[in-house]
C-alpha cells in the first residue's frame, strides 16, 4: 500500500540524512521526499511517500519517531487529506504544436511561464495522476525536460500538525 507520511522535524543539518539513512539501512523504499522550512524557521516539514505492508508502515513510523530530531509525524493516508505536486515541464513548441500545447495547458489549468521561438515551460500543480495525465497528453517527442517536486500533503479539516 502507498502511504504518505508527513513529518515535522528540527530544521538542523543532518536531520534529512538521518531520515534518508533510516530508509536505506532498513531496506524501506522511498518513492518521493520533499522538505522545506515551515513558518517557524526552527522546524521543517517533510512529506515522504513510501510503500509497504501494514507491518512495515508501522515499523517505519515507529522508527521515524525514534529519530531524535523528529518532533511529530502523521500518516496522512489514514484520514482525509490533500496532496499536491508541482511540475515544471519544458516542451518543444514549433509550428502547429504551439497551439496544441497551449490548448492542453488551458484544459489542465496549467500556466505557460516561459516562451521562446521553439519552446514553452509549463508550470502545473495537482495530484500525481493529473501531472501524469498531462505528460501522457503531450506528444512524447515534444517533451524536453520534466521536473517534479514529489507530493506535499496536508490533512483536511481545522486541526494542524504543530508542536
Amino acid at each position: 500500500m502507498r502511504h504518505i507520511i508527513s513529518i515535522l522535524m528540527e530544521n538542523e543539518s543532518g536531520a534529512l540524512s538521518r531520515v534518508a539513512g533510516l530508509f536505506s539501512a532498513r531496506g524501506y523504499n522511498i518513492e518521493s521526499l520533499t522538505v522545506a522550512p515551515t513558518e517557524d524557521p526552527t522546524l521543517s516539514r517533510m512529506t515522504l511517500v513510501t510503500r509497504g505492508s501494514d507491518e512495515i508502515i508501522e515499523q517505519i513510523t515507529k522508527q521515524l519517531h525514534k529519530l531524535i530530531e523528529v518532533v511529530k509525524l502523521v500518516d496522512l493516508s489514514e484520514g482525509a487529506h490533500i496532496e499536491r505536486e508541482m511540475m515544471l515541464i519544458k516542451v518543444k513548441a514549433v509550428g502547429g504544436h504551439r497551439e496544441e500545447v497551449k490548448r492542453l495547458v488551458e484544459i489542465f489549468r496549467a500556466n505557460i511561464i516561459d516562451v521562446t521561438d521553439t519552446s514553452y515551460i509549463v508550470e502545473m500543480t495537482g495530484d500525481g495522476d493529473k501531472l501524469d495525465a498531462f505528460i501522457k497528453a503531450v506528444h512524447e517527442d515534444l517533451i524536453v525536460e520534466t521536473v517534479r517536486t514529489g507530493p506535499s500533503g496536508i490533512a483536511r479539516g481545522a486541526k494542524g500538525l504543530a508542536i
Partner: peptide, 8 residues
Amino acid sequence: IDPASISK
C-alpha cells in the same frame, strides 16, 4: 520502553 520493539 521502545515502541519500535513491540510487534516488530
